[in-house]
Design a protein around this nucleic acid. Structure first.
Lengths: 262, 262
DNA sequence: TAGTGGTCTAGACCACCTA
DNA sequence: AGGTGGTCTAGACCACTAA
């Protein structure tokens, strides 16, 4: 008879005081780490694991749930549990806001995606006037009303980033910035045309687990954190002219920065 | 009779097709978000939730496990389930490697911790020669052997960061860099004294869930991701002189960077 | 239709903490 | 000793997917 997929797994150590579901998770994790199950492979079904280990269904499910929390596997109802495929990663370079990149026609996201052969999309574009949260208001130097631009970025149909840009209303109202499509080079190009020459950006980075709502927006598998990035753009007079609040699927990004030694 | 802690919770919607354990989790989450349970507060016990909702124990535990995965609560055996306290956050500023900060006596970590009234500790200091991984070797320009400095940083007894520095062996051997305590200003100060004037650093940032081993080293609650930071230091001749591979408890850090607009 | 994971019940025994 | 969460069993019915 052909080897079943549980042939790749060992036996439990009944003398160990490590919980059975942890031992099962350990064995599956090791098999994944060593490549005996590759990315996208199906793990043995719950029934097979129950037979192999002689454990109850809840114990087996507990083990799998542990691996889900670690981001190692994803389950698909009616199909099985699979080793989580690693999506292509988008690298944000430290010079990504250099002026020369704005002087092309397309947006940075589009250019970059096409360079690596991915299909870029932007949806959920909502532009409207709002009263900012306390935090955003402070970052914008005390703005009372702001223009908020919300959008979601997708690569090959997969959402990877959700971003909201806030600009002081007195600066953005009745300009191309308030249009759904602000034109070539994006809002930073428009800001400069309006006389707000950009000097530098400050970024703050945090990582955490998503709320259920955020997980839904980014279609995140369980066990995938988000990177929360808040960027403030300053003009040459030191005034903040934009705050961008961004939530990124952590498994889709690497952020790169350069730091001076002086 | 006095209000029990479940008095803060509503009833289930039996007409909803949302799973019972999700509804229970939703109610607890909302109560936490709205501050009806504050940081560090104890949630109703499993028994109380079972009585309140008329659900079975597994259903209630399933709900709590959902909240654990979101990083909202932590359970303590024999005590209860608590709203996860937010630890003080360590902010890494964009000028943290400026030369002027090295010219003091103490390490950056120590100075910074004492400034915010925390007690800094460094343990697990292991310094030894190693053969680098392919990735580290590449980053160091093809080094065959390296000096590896491992250490764990703690604030008020809580581990927050685990870091390994790699330096080309031919550069670090028989220097203070190979000592457990490299002296005031740390290894960057020593590198400069040895004639390797530092020019800039490059950092790469990722976020993900920790492996069980990493979670143990950093004593992470479930639902807390890690920030994985890889820094390469370059001297004025453009040569990489150090790679530092760092794992940080994501709930203990905010990283700040400055980006040029030009 | 058969196999998969998703939800739920009703119990049991254990380990840990506080008192 | 009593309350808390941790582990485990043995079932049940359901929803989704594929052949």
């Amino acid at each position: 008879m052909p080897p079943r997929s549980t042939g790749l797994l060992g036996a439990l150590d009944s003398t160990s005081d490590r919980a059975v579901f942890r031992q099962i998770a350990d064995q599956l994790r090791e098999a994944i780490d060593k490549g005996r199950f590759a990315e996208g492979d199906k793990l043995p079904s719950e029934t097979e694991l129950i037979d192999h280990y002689g454990a109850s269904r809840m114990t087996v499910r507990n083990a799998i749930s542990l691996l889900q929390g670690e981001g190692l596997v994803v389950s698909e109802h009616g199909k099985g549990v699979f080793v989580r495929p690693r999506p292509p990663v988008r690298r944000l370079a430290s010079d990504r806001f250099a002026r020369r990149h704005r002087e092309q026609g397309k947006s940075a996201f589009t250019v970059e995606a096409e360079a690596v052969g991915s299909r870029p999309e932007v949806d959920d574009l909502v532009v409207r006037e709002e009263r900012p949260s306390q935090d955003i208001a402070t970052r914008l130097g005390g703005a009372r009303k702001v223009l908020a631009r919300r959008r979601r970025y997708l690569l090959d149909g997969r959402p990877v980033e959700f971003a909201v840009s806030y600009l002081p209303l007195n600066l953005a109202r009745n300009t191309p910035i308030a249009e759904p499509n602000p034109g070539p080079g994006g809002i930073y190009a428009r800001l400069e045309e309006l006389g707000h020459r950009l000097d530098h950006f400050e970024e703050e980075i945090r990582a955490r687990m998503p709320s259920p709502e955020e997980a839904k927006t980014l279609r995140l598998a369980s066990g995938v954190p988000v990177i929360h990035l808040i960027r403030t753009a300053y003009d040459t007079e030191g005034r903040p002219v934009e705050v961008c609040d961004t939530l990124m699927a952590a498994d889709a990004y690497v952020l790169a920065y350069q730091l001076p030694a002086t």
